[in-house]
């Protein structure tokens, strides 16, 4: 475990804490894409299939359970909680996210390291995670005003994978010197998708003004 990966995991955890904070304290999920949250549940379910078959460390197992539990909990809140579900921006969360799942499945069947169920599903989870933020970014562009916690949530979510890229550089140089094209390219695409959000987020933070994405 290197510092970049630890920072990455903590940033990812923090993003989830911020989202839960928003949903639980404000009792609102306005501006949050349910579709992105559902995609993340699929990402975690298909990536952590080895949860009960392979043991790496207490940390690894604990974090997998936290990510699975919180992502499922958030979807439950947005779908079934009597107060929160009323605040879901249903009419604006219109991205056709089933296409993202289909494309990721097809790509995972075509490009993978080994053709076995676990490996193909793990590869699928990497491809899906790379594009899972798209419904959320589209929703942000439609939102007139983006509340601070939502902006912070998306920023932290984008930052975690950027830190993972540093972790991969470190591991390549210092550890196994092996090329891991699939996670690397997926991670680069994922981070690149946040590029313009990062630009507007940092600009709004520097100018102390409300975050606004161009339509």
């Amino acid at each position: 475990m290197n510092l970049f990966r630890l920072l990455g995991d903590m940033t990812h955890l923090l993003s989830i804490v911020v989202l839960l904070l928003k949903i639980r304290t404000v009792k609102s999920c306005a501006g949050i894409s349910l579709k992105t949250q559902e995609l993340y549940v699929i990402v975690f379910l298909t990536r952590y299939l080895d949860l009960f078959t392979k043991y790496y460390s207490v940390y690894n197992t604990a974090m997998k359970l936290v990510f699975l539990g919180t992502s499922i909990g958030i979807v439950w809140y947005m779908r079934y909680h009597k107060v929160v579900k009323q605040t879901y921006s249903k009419d604006e969360d219109t991205f056709k996210h089933y296409f993202l799942i289909l494309l990721s499945i097809i790509l995972a069947l075509l490009i993978h390291r080994a053709f076995d169920v676990i490996e193909v599903l793990w590869t699928f989870s990497l491809y899906l995670e790379a594009v899972a933020i798209l419904p959320q970014l589209v929703l942000l562009q439609k939102s007139r005003n983006i509340d601070t916690l939502t902006g912070d949530y998306v920023f932290l979510l984008g930052a975690y994978r950027a830190l993972y890229i540093l972790n991969w550089v470190y591991r390549f140089l210092m550890e196994n010197h092996k090329f891991r094209w699939i996670p690397w390219i997926s991670g680069l695409v994922q981070t690149a998708l946040y590029a313009d959000f990062f630009y507007y987020y940092i600009k709004s933070w520097k100018n102390r003004e409300k975050l606004k994405l161009p339509a």
Partner: peptide
């Protein structure tokens, strides 16, 4: 033995 591409990451 761990496969070369260990899945020890989250």
């Amino acid at each position: 033995a761990q496969d070369p591409f260990t899945k020890d990451e989250l």
